[in-house]
């Protein structure tokens, strides 16, 4: 099994760290992983994206032109990455800030009200963990216990007290995923 994912949104939404926690979760589940970020000045307030690959076998290219799953968190990323989802693949998006919803008819589409759920949780910084939870509902590529271990590995020890709150956000996202279109 190989899962090729693009996570794309604004810099500051936690796109890169969400990818990192997912990659760490893969490591904890003994998978091969790669994490390749966009980097540079465009990250400050502009768009940020990261390609994460989880696989049972050796990973070839860390750079891709089509994806099994696209997790899309702003309109620019929707415009860029919607056409790059493989036929039959998965697109997950947060409708907050999306003016033009996805139009593809050959892919599975899900919504997650990540911004709202994170606000309800009382900490908007948990937004990316809500979205991660939604993704894991749609594609259970790693177990929840691996996510917990991944959080422990990727967060410095001084932030470990935040792990229960982050796991709650993951759980809320897991429960909050809405199916828009199945193919």
């Amino acid at each position: 099994m190989t899962e090729e994912i693009i996570i794309a949104g604004f810099g500051g939404q936690g796109v890169l760290s969400m990818g990192k926690i997912l990659a760490y979760s893969g490591v904890m589940a003994n998978q091969e992983v790669s994490w390749f970020p966009s980097y540079g000045p465009e990250m400050r307030g502009g768009t940020a994206n990261v390609t994460v690959i989880l696989s049972e076998s050796r990973i070839s290219s860390p750079v891709l032109n089509e994806y099994d799953t696209a997790i899309i968190l702003n309109q620019q990323s929707m415009d860029k990455f919607e056409p790059m989802v493989k036929a039959g693949g998965v697109l997950i998006y947060d409708p907050n800030g999306i003016i033009h919803p996805p139009k593809r008819t050959d892919i599975n589409i899900y919504k997650i009200e990540g911004t709202l759920i994170a606000a309800e949780l009382g900490n908007v910084k948990t937004f990316n963990m809500v979205v991660l939870g939604a993704y894991l509902k749609a594609k259970p590529v790693v177990k929840m216990e691996s996510v917990e271990k991944g959080l422990q590995k990727s967060l410095p020890a001084r932030h470990h007290y935040l792990i229960p709150m982050n796991l709650e956000a993951v759980q809320k996202g897991f429960e909050g995923l809405e199916l828009v279109q199945a193919v």
Partner: peptide, 10 residues
């Protein structure tokens, strides 16, 4: 290059 420098792997 920037690909291998910036990417994370095991």
């Amino acid at each position: 290059d920037g690909v291998i420098g910036q990417m994370m792997e095991k």
